[in-house]
C-alpha cells in the first residue's frame, strides 16, 4: 500500500463519525464579517493607504502623472544609486529624467548580478489601504519576484485611486492565484529579538511608495 493510500485510508477511518449529509462548503462557513472596515471615499482610501504604509516605515510620496519622471529622478539621486533595475514592461516615460544607468532584468541574470544593483523601480498589481500593503503579481511592469527582493532599495509606483482597494477581501478578488504573488507591507522587518519590531533584514531595507494620480 502506498503512503498516499495509507494516509487517505486513515483520514477516512478517522472521520467515520461525520454524517454523510453534512452541510456543503457554501453553507458550512458563515461569512458575517465585513467586506471592508468603514465607509470611505476614494480619496480617503488613498489617504489611509499612505498613512498605513508610513506607519510601517515605508517612505510615501504623492505626485501627479506629469511629475513622476522628475520625482523618480530625484529619489534615485538622493539614494546616490548608480544602477537601477527595470522590469521589461515598465512605462518608458517614467525614467526619462534620470541619468542613473538602467539594468534590464534578464532571465539569465544570476542572483549575484542582482545583488550589485542599487535600486529597482516597479509598478504594482493592487494596494490595500487598511493594511498598508502593495501586491506584486509578476506582471510585465513588475518583473520577476527576485528583482524586488535582492536590491536594497525598492521604489514602487501605485496608480491612485484605481489600483487601491480598502481591504484584504477586496484585494484577493482582484488577484489571480495562478500568478506568483508578493504582498509587501513596509520594508523587511523582524520581531525576533525580544518580540520587538526592527526594520531591515533580508529584503530591501528601504521601501519607497509613490502614489501617482
Amino acid at each position: 500500500m502506498s503512503s498516499r493510500e495509507r494516509i487517505l485510508g486513515r483520514v477516512r477511518r478517522a472521520l467515520a463519525d461525520v454524517p454523510r449529509d453534512e452541510p456543503p462548503y457554501e453553507e458550512a462557513v458563515a461569512r458575517d464579517y465585513l467586506r471592508e472596515h468603514g465607509a470611505r471615499s476614494a480619496e480617503e482610501t488613498v489617504a489611509l493607504l499612505a498613512e498605513n504604509l508610513a506607519d510601517y516605515r515605508a517612505l510615501v510620496h504623492r505626485c501627479g502623472a506629469d511629475e513622476l519622471p522628475s520625482l523618480l529622478a530625484r529619489l534615485l539621486a538622493e539614494r546616490k544609486a548608480a544602477t537601477v533595475l527595470v522590469p521589461p514592461g515598465l512605462d518608458e516615460a517614467w525614467l526619462t529624467e534620470t541619468e542613473v544607468a538602467r539594468v534590464a532584468d534578464r532571465v539569465e541574470s544570476g542572483a549575484h548580478e542582482l545583488d550589485r544593483v542599487d535600486s529597482v523601480v516597479t509598478a504594482c498589481a493592487v494596494a490595500v489601504a487598511e493594511t498598508g500593503t502593495i501586491v506584486l503579481d509578476g506582471g510585465p511592469d513588475q518583473g520577476r519576484r527576485r528583482i524586488t527582493l535582492v536590491p536594497d532599495h525598492h521604489i514602487c509606483v501605485v496608480r491612485v485611486p484605481e489600483q487601491v482597494v480598502s481591504s484584504v477581501p477586496q484585494a484577493l478578488e482582484r488577484l489571480d492565484p495562478a500568478r506568483p504573488l508578493t504582498w509587501i507591507s513596509g520594508p523587511s522587518a523582524t520581531s525576533d529579538i525580544e518580540l520587538d519590531r526592527v526594520e531591515g533584514v533580508h529584503g530591501p531595507r528601504t521601501l519607497e511608495v509613490i502614489l501617482v494620480g
Partner: peptide, 21 residues
Amino acid sequence: STAERMNPYTSTWTGTTDGDG
C-alpha cells in the same frame, strides 16, 4: 502573531512559473 495589520511579506505560488522562481 506579530500584532501587525499585515506582516511585511506574504508569498503565494502555484506550482512553477516559467522564468520566475
